[in-house]
Every structure is written in C-alpha cells, then in structure tokens.
Amino acid sequence: MYDFKTINGLIELAQKEELSIPEVVILREQELSERSEAEIRELMKKNLKVMKEAAQKGLEKDDLTSISGLTGGDGRLLAEAEKDGKSLIGAVISQAVAKALAIAEVNAAMEPIVAVPTAGSCGILPAALLTVAEKYEKKEEEVIDALFVASGIGLAIAQQASVSGAEGGCQAECGSAAGMAAGAVVYLMGGDHNQLASAVAISLKTVLGLVCDPVAGLVEVPCIKRNATGASNALVAAEMALAGIESVIPVDEVIVAMKKVGDALPNELKETSLGGLAATPTARKIENELTLNN
C-alpha cells in the first residue's frame, strides 16, 4: 500500500521504500486507478502541455479580456516591462509573476487551463515551475516529476485540510497552490526532503488566514493578482529552504493550523462575496454595473 495522508507520511514512505517522491505518488495512483505508470505519466504530460499553452496564450494574445471585461492583459504588461529591463525584483520572480497573471487571465477569459488545485489558483504552480525550468534548462521528464511532487503535496493538504476557497478561504486555494509550487521547485532544483517540507511550510505560513472574497462573485479580482503573489511566495519560500532555512513549525502542523483557521473564518469570507474586498464600495459598484449590463 503506497498511501499517505501527510507530507511527513509521504517522505517516510519514500525513505522506507527507497523510492523518490514522484515514484511514491505514481505508485499510489496506480493502486487507486489501476492505470499503468506510463498512462499516468502521459496524463501528466498532457497537463504540462496545457499549462505551457495557457502561459503562452496569456503572454502573447494582445486582446485578452475576461467575459465580464474586468480583467486581462496585465501579464503581458509586466512581461514587456521586464523585457525592457525595467524589473525591480529580478528576472526569475518577475517572469514567474507575469506568467501567473497571464494564466489566471486566460482562465478568466474562458480558455483552457489546468485546475491546480483549483481554477482560481491555476496560475501559481505552472508559473513558478515553468520559469525555473526554463532558466535552468530542465528536461521535460524532470518537470513532470516535479508535477508529481506537487500533486503529492496537494494530496496531503487536501486530506488534512482543504483546497477549496468555499471551505477554507483563499489560503486553501492560493496558499495550497503556493505550497505545492514551492515543494515542486525545491525538488526540481535537487533539494532534499527536509528542504522540500520547509518550503511548503514557509509558503503556507505566510498566507495563513487569507480570505476568499471575489468581487462580484467572479474569479478575477483579487484572484488574478493573488496568483501573482502566490507564485512569488513559492519562489521566495523555495529560495529560503534551498539555502538551509528551516520552518520552526513542521509542515503538517502548519497544514492542520490552516484547516483550523479555515474553519474559524466566517462564511462572509469564504467565497460568498459578502465580506472582504467583495464588500468594498468599489466592488459593489462593479457588481451593479455588471448586473445592469446584463
């Protein structure tokens, strides 16, 4: 049985069986789905392809707008500024942020994306992972392995807490996505198990309590920009962990804390658009305008 409920459980299983984390995650899926390893890898390859296409579309299309007309084009704007040498924070983070915006904008424009873990947070993992993979010229198979690492992390979070904004607030969506991305990047860069666990813990800790408050109920404001900060969060956490910085609170305790915080959040702040940014005067105005236009 290759099953695990926690990140620690996943790491222990890998150590005991002398397997890599992607191997454990794939074996678990084989047992669960009766699919072969080749089939599972093929499905992941397809996911990667859609991620790349979404990033490209978001960065290149010059008339990208959401159905509501509220958002679109910001990823491109940032990518152009970076190309013009105007980046303040450096190429890797700037490019990752641009990609995260671009993919989230593609999502809002009703184009194909991969929900990781959800559609609302779909930009974070691909943006962080693809940017690092490009910079360090990682092979496709390595990136696919990193995606399996990300799914292992996501599974541990989903089983101990939640990956849905309606259940746990945005910490559960954009937070989990950042945790998955941070761990995947550490794996891709050859970090060890402790570093991986610390990266996930650090990225989750920084967004603990983040509420889900989509303006007018649409997955656009603040979601798209939270994808941007989610990608940078993942890279900052990975950078720290790879340098040997540890999380004082172990990762699974952080996940359980996130679950408790999520439970304590009032309904107003869990995707109902009754509180937070969704209840600001400007948000209400946007909401009214959208209703009138309809």
Binding site: V25, R28, E29, L32, S33, I40, L43, M44, K46, N47, V50, S66, I67, V106, N107, A108, A109, M110, E111, P112, I113, V114, A115, V116, P117, T118, A119, G120, C122, L125, L147, F148, A150, S151, G152, G154, L155, A158, Q159, V163, A166, M180, L218, V219, E220
Partner: peptide, 21 residues
C-alpha cells in the same frame, strides 16, 4: 479516495470549476 488528477487537473475551460466545468 482522492486521485492526484483531482489535485492537478482537470483540464478545463475557465474561469470556475464549480460554475463552469
């Protein structure tokens, strides 16, 4: 039991898994 394809995936048209997919 959750599949890893519930975490990475589905491939879908945005913007919302509940309201669109």
């Amino acid at each position: 039991k959750l599949s890893l394809l519930d975490i990475i995936g589905p491939i879908m048209l945005g913007p919302s898994s509940s309201h669109t997919a």
